[in-house]
Amino acid sequence: MAILKVNDLKVYFPIKAGIFNRTVDHVKAVDGVSFSIEQGKTYGLVGESGSGKTTTGRAVIGLESIYSGKVMFNGKDITNFGRKNSALRKDVQMIFQDPYSSLNPRKRILDIIAEPLRNFENLSMQEEKKRVQSLLEIVGLSPESILKYPHEFSGGQRQRIGIARAIAVRPKLIIADEPVSALDVSVQAQVLNFMQDIQKELNLTYLFISHDLGIVKHMCDDIAIMYKGRYVEQGTTADIFNNPQHIYTKRLVSAIPDINPRNREKQYHFRQEVQREYANSYNDYFDSEGLAYGLQPISDTHLVALPERG
């Protein structure tokens, strides 16, 4: 059974104008997105800045108010579960993008990691300290660091503190919003490896939001590509990378720099070709407003936004 099911999710931001500050229009940040994630899997949400991927993640966890649509977690409707329903809140946690701004600089590591524990579990000071120390050990930091402050840690270490906080209450689903984009390559590797390890250990499910296709390819089982608030393509990692169907997906895939310098010319020509195809067949893939069409299945796992046939 799917642990998370999102149905026709829409998140609109109002545009206000005039002397009465009335809502005159909406920005459709997320415009009809549906997906489901199986327990223990990693689902990648890819798109460029402004595509609505982060908003989708934030809406799922309740940080953005949902205009319409449904979010089901473990069979329960959590669409507007708000602050009250703490049992559900505990099961869904978030890892934020920027480890420099997501940790309160005036709190000690102990207090940062213990915050979710204090919200959801009644632990004595001793128990709490023990739990935090064991969490620090899980993320590979020394248990003595509980009395330190965030500024005493490097970027990678901070991101691991963020992860320790996210897994403190043993969630089932973690929404990871660009968890490594602020980090150097070698530190990136460390955090990604670590996320994979605890996934196996705790049977975690990830909603992995990223703009980096290389990393998404490495981490995810299924991938969705977003553009202007809509899906343009969804499928398994193999579907997306070996058989991209939508021109926008092709364009993204062709833009990834190849790590082998021998492929440089080939990659350049491929990119030029895709660019030409993009210019020529734009109208076949996008409607009059420049938005993607509805998704059409082309195989059991593979959905592509194409105009309806006939």
Partner: peptide, 18 residues
């Protein structure tokens, strides 16, 4: 070498950590 090994590439299970 370590840098090159820490970038995800085709068929790589585990990334190298420095």
């Amino acid at each position: 070498k370590s840098l090159l090994n820490s970038v995800p590439t085709e068929g790589q299970e585990k990334l190298h950590v420095i």
